[in-house]
């Protein structure tokens, strides 16, 4: 027993030194107006060693998972689905120390289904979509930077960022979630650096159609016009002084 412990203690630093490091983990999720999502993920690894690397996915039921780019001999399977789906990468002997893995998958339902019980009042206007995403690093391999970019369906914009966790640390500049715009789409990016085992990050977004109600324009112009007519006396020459 003591010999086993001694061996473990001696082997642990070597194992840690050989442990694969995830430099960055980027997922780009392109949501369609129907609510389906096509994701492309890129893992940048260093210090790779033959064997298995387990990486949490952050999506519970991915479909059509495929490796699109990797060193020869790498294969991928989905791990057990106990709430958190994991990706199990198998690295062959002769795996290069630095590698980039690119894989894709589909998400059946990107947005949260809004189902109201009979008689329940809706708290969101018609056409709104809610996107929730939470990522927990369940594995001991630390992740340098985790980034999830959601490309909104065409014709949608972010109404508000309802949640962005954890709050930025003192040495971080800017928000946890950043909104941006590409050529055709608006996007929101959740970013968190230096995730150790147990660290988590999440965002909740409310999306709305880009089109503003024309009612604002009509009401505004009508009010402004009526005021200009009814309050002409404000600028009338020879207007009696107040109280006169």
């Amino acid at each position: 027993m003591n010999l086993m412990r001694m061996l473990l203690i001696l082997l642990l630093p070597a194992a840690l030194a050989a442990a694969t490091r995830i430099e960055s983990y980027t997922i780009q999720l392109h949501a369609s107006p129907e609510g389906r999502g096509q994701a492309t993920a890129i893992l940048s690894l260093s210090n790779c060693a033959p064997g298995m690397l387990v990486v949490p996915l952050g999506f519970s039921a991915p479909e059509d998972l495929k490796i699109e780019g990797s060193p020869t001999g790498v294969w991928l399977e989905l791990g057990p689905r106990n709430g958190m789906t994991s990706l199990h990468f198998h690295f062959p002997a002769g795996m290069p120390a630095n590698a980039t893995l690119r894989f894709t998958f589909e998400v059946k339902q990107v947005f949260q289904a809004l189902q109201l019980a009979p008689g329940e009042k809706s708290t969101l206007p018609k056409g709104s979509r809610i996107f929730r995403h939470a990522f927990v690093n369940t594995q001991e391999t630390p992740i340098g930077t985790y980034r999830l970019e959601l490309l909104f369906p065409e014709g949608f914009m972010a109404q508000a960022i309802r949640e962005q966790l954890p709050k930025p640390k003192k040495n971080e500049v800017g928000s946890r979630v950043l909104l941006s715009k590409t050529a055709d789409h608006q996007a929101a990016t959740l970013q968190f650096t230096d995730l150790h085992q147990g660290d988590d990050t999440s965002m909740i977004l409310e999306l709305v159609p880009t089109q503003r109600s024309i009612g604002w324009l009509l009401a505004g112009l009508l009010l402004g016009g009526v005021y200009l007519i009814k309050f002409r006396d404000l600028i009338a020459k020879g207007r009696p002084a107040p109280g006169a």
């Binding site: 914009m157 972010a158 508000a160 909104l179 941006s180 709305v208 604002w216 505004g220 009010l223």
Partner: peptide, 18 residues
């Protein structure tokens, strides 16, 4: 009112929520 409408109906800007 005009300024309100102008800002409200501007195309959604990069990085700015509705």
């Amino acid at each position: 009112i005009l300024l309100f409408l102008l800002i409200l109906f501007l195309p959604p800007g990069a990085g700015l929520s509705a």
